[in-house]
Nucleic acid binder design. Structure first.
Lengths: 203, 203, 203, 203
DNA sequence: AATGAATGAGCGTTCATTCAT
DNA sequence: GATGAATGAACGCTCATTCAT
């Protein structure tokens, strides 16, 4: 399992200490806080400590910055999902690991970029939407494989697609209320959500 | 139970056939489709058949239009919630009615304005956020009352607050996938969600 | 024959005292003096006494201003050509009138816009080039009709196309040297050029 | 008479195979095709296969590149004029040689740089305009000497200055229509223009 | 109420030029 | 001599808002 922290700095591979990485981290936070449209390239530049014109040595347009943020976070979290289920044979254990990993993405280390992914989707060009969708499909397939296995094992009664969508709703909305400094831990929330899907009490 | 339709025209009280009402309906749809920032006052004016300058005889700023859309939809759906639980004594029946009503709001007649409520929240001024929050608190209290009653009746084991948040996630995310023309009905989805909260199979 | 003056104000129909007309006159002069690319929309706005943003209530883009200048001057001078030959039966008299009219266009009242027509042609979009070309074709046809008539009458030995091009060269270049305040008059220059085409001394 | 070709590569002395020469050739073509203002230093650098910053080891500013192109082409064509009349005693023969040489410059081997000379003149700084004008004066003096000789010999009736300007118009405009692959040769065009100046049929 | 021309601050982007390496 | 990241002023254009009519 990947070691994740809740440190302020992003740990996404492509968002490292390089100029490009720092730029993407700053952009992700600004896009989350103010929205893509209300974030000016001058805002981003100021945050990184360069002139606004210099941004365009790294990215051809402002929208490409948004796209890069999204691609990085999808790729990183797809890897996180893979690592989470690696070596786990029990479908229920896999599901728990997936929920845990997705919560980590949404309210933990990549929360800013994940929020951008949801809220600024329509700011992507149609072409970039299509490309990002292809990457998300890989991410979603990992979920579907685990849910279908669970169903085959008789541990899931409900439709796998609908189940996934209900889980998505529960995890993604948690960014709006989960308090990292509160008493509820991610592990506890994981179990609560898992219980909504395959309650032990279910026959 | 309120009679709701999936007609194109909005049925929110304040969004009627009056100039103001048509303006708010048009704005809600445009804000949903393009986002608040990408919708120009000229877009709205064109939709209503007036000049952009004339908008400002109805609303002092563009942001006030957004605020009005949100206030109308919160008020309308709060009334819908009240009507839904009126006359129902059984907490479980109340809960089912609440879920049904919220789904109706999110994927039915007020779906456009509800989407705006979620996605354009940060475009409100802090002052307006506070006012809207006060209205939402009334809406949320109806939910909390029912959930607490359910808990007191021993029908809900989990924390009421967390439960409400998980429900909110499941219902609000449905706007991203529910197909009004698909085979899944709102009533079926209501039962599926209800089952995640108080499954009959639960001890 | 049209009455033309060498007054500073343009007399092109579409470049009158209306806001649009004053804008086009100012733009024509600036484009001539500084070139299209070096003329900023702020330059034009300042000249007309408005803010730069206000330009775009009259024209959708800066390039459309250039196009409008060109269309106006082509249309106006085509009419001038028509008026010049109207009622003249003798092809030689027609030719003299055409040369006189073209010189008037190039070094007289429309000299600024005519210069723009030649020097800023490539700043037009391909689409606008095509449209302007269609208008110029009408203008050129008036010339070709007269030259062909002259040839049929045995008064022109050389090829009509080549002759027209040599005339174009002589008239258009005159903008680079003709001095409106010098001793050479437009009528004298007309006769000199006419003499290069159908000299009396020619057999 | 100089041997000239219509090969794509420029044959101007200062525009040879050296880095500087290749740079000037590329710049001349780009300036002709796109205009000075629309040609970026990156365009030029890319054409030469270096980075844009490296251009400034050869020329202090972009405008100096334009100036160098112009100086080279004026010098080269002044030499061409000298070579053309060298050894010719008959003023009429000299005139024919001058027209031939100028056409060669405008529509032959130096056509790109010559076009730049006409169309991008105003992009020069006033200082450079003055310097280039001094070089052009030498070029023009060769023309004036021949025309004055022709006048003294009674072979030219018209004013020499005006005659030169009409010739300039005819030759320079030819760049806009002469087709190197058409049926009209440069020699034929030379004779046609010569005939407009000193027709044999003239008394 | 409605118009529509005008405002003016601000946007994303460009690009000649610089300079540490 | 060459690099290429960075600069920073300027560009064309947008748009919520105003206001005389």
């Amino acid at each position: 399992m990947v070691q994740v922290s809740t440190q302020p700095q992003q740990i996404v591979n492509g968002m490292d200490d390089s100029p490009r990485g720092k730029l993407l981290s700053a952009a992700a936070r600004l896009f989350r806080d103010q929205g893509f449209d209300r974030t000016t390239v001058r805002d981003i530049a100021r945050e990184v400590g360069i002139q606004s014109g210099s941004l365009f040595h790294h990215f051809p347009t402002k929208e490409d910055i948004l796209f890069a943020v999204m691609v990085e976070v999808i790729r990183f979290n797809t890897e996180r999902l893979r690592a989470a289920i690696a070596g786990k044979a029990d479908p229920a254990e896999q599901l728990r690991a997936l929920i845990r990993a997705e919560l980590q993405a949404i309210i933990g280390d990549t929360r800013e970029a994940m929020s951008v992914l949801v809220y600024e989707w329509r700011c992507l060009t149609p072409q970039h939407q299509q490309e990002a969708l292809a990457l998300r499909a890989i991410y979603e397939q990992l979920w579907m494989d685990a849910l279908e296995a669970l169903r085959s094992a008789g541990r899931l009664k409900a439709d796998a697609f609908i189940t996934r969508r209900l889980i998505t709703g529960m995890t993604s909305w948690s960014s709006n209320w989960f308090d990292a400094h509160g008493s509820l831990t991610i592990d506890q929330l994981t179990d609560i959500i898992l219980d909504r899907v395959i309650g032990e009490h279910c026959a």
